[in-house]
């Protein structure tokens, strides 16, 4: 079974985000970039499937500038077999990415597509769902457990207040939640092997996709600074402030 996994290059989750002085976007100058944590979970799940003999090949795909090769190499070091970069510096909003991925899916014909449920940069949580619609495939989002049988995949989803288990016929699309697994560290031998694994680069033109802007970024604002606390003299004063100032009780 061929598994296709998508990987997005995002700001490392440990980095404190800076906004450009004019508020036009996030400042990416000299910022450490990494694999989106949800995508890393997706790669790990695919690698575990291969270790169990369920998956025969893992193909990782990214859409973005040439620097995204670094994240694809990381995915290869974690255990993927080959990589495809759809290289573009143009607008990579969710629908555009989904259209590009749909073409890759059409070419690769995977039995299962595993994606992160969202990227930690724009938090859209859209691409997986859009790809499912474009490919006319069943989808299961927010997966916390995935189990593949002959022609179907059972997915336990994290939903408000509980869990839901779905069965999907293959080929299907699954998006991962945080608790699906704990990604491994890339071992040095695998890092060295990753260098020799194939990484193909294609462009949107090669895939016959014309990118167009459907949304426009108007501005980015950092969260408001936390103001200093105050000391209260009594429980009664605390209750009064919670009730009348904070209005939380």
């Amino acid at each position: 079974m061929k598994v296709l996994v998508t990987v997005k290059r995002v700001i490392d989750y440990n980095v404190k985000i800076r906004v450009k002085p004019d508020g036009s976007d996030v400042d990416l100058t000299n910022v450490k970039m990494a694999v989106n944590p949800f995508c890393e979970i997706a790669v790990e799940e695919a690698v575990r499937m291969k270790e169990k003999g369920i998956a025969s090949e893992i193909v990782v795909v990214s859409v973005g500038a040439s620097e995204a090769q670094e994240q694809l190499r990381t995915a290869l070091a974690l255990g993927a077999d080959r990589a495809i970069l759809v290289e573009t510096t143009a607008n990579t909003e969710s629908l555009n990415v989904a259209k590009l991925l749909a073409k890759v899916v059409e070419q690769e014909q995977p039995s299962l597509v595993i994606m992160g449920k969202q990227a930690i940069d724009s938090d859209n949580n859209q691409t997986g769902q859009m790809l499912a619609a474009l490919c006319d495939m069943p989808q299961a989002t927010f997966a916390s457990e995935v189990s593949v049988t002959d022609n179907s995949v059972a997915v336990t989803r994290e939903i408000d207040g509980g869990l839901q288990t779905l069965s999907l016929r293959l080929p299907a699309i699954v998006t991962t939640d945080l608790r699906l697994n704990e990604p491994r560290y890339a071992s040095l031998p695998n890092i060295m092997k990753a260098k020799r694994k194939p990484l193909a680069t294609v462009t949107p033109d090669d895939l016959g996709v014309t990118l167009s802007a459907h949304t426009q970024l108007l501005g980015v604002n950092p969260p408001p600074q936390r103001s200093a606390g105050v000391k209260v003299k009594s429980v009664a004063e605390l209750v009064d402030k919670l009730k009348n100032e904070a209005k939380v009780i």
Partner: peptide, 16 residues
């Protein structure tokens, strides 16, 4: 180089 960078990332992640 690429390998050293990935080694750095992997070890840094373990420590973190």
């Amino acid at each position: 180089n690429d390998i050293q960078q990935m080694l750095k990332d992997s070890a840094g992640k373990f420590i973190h």
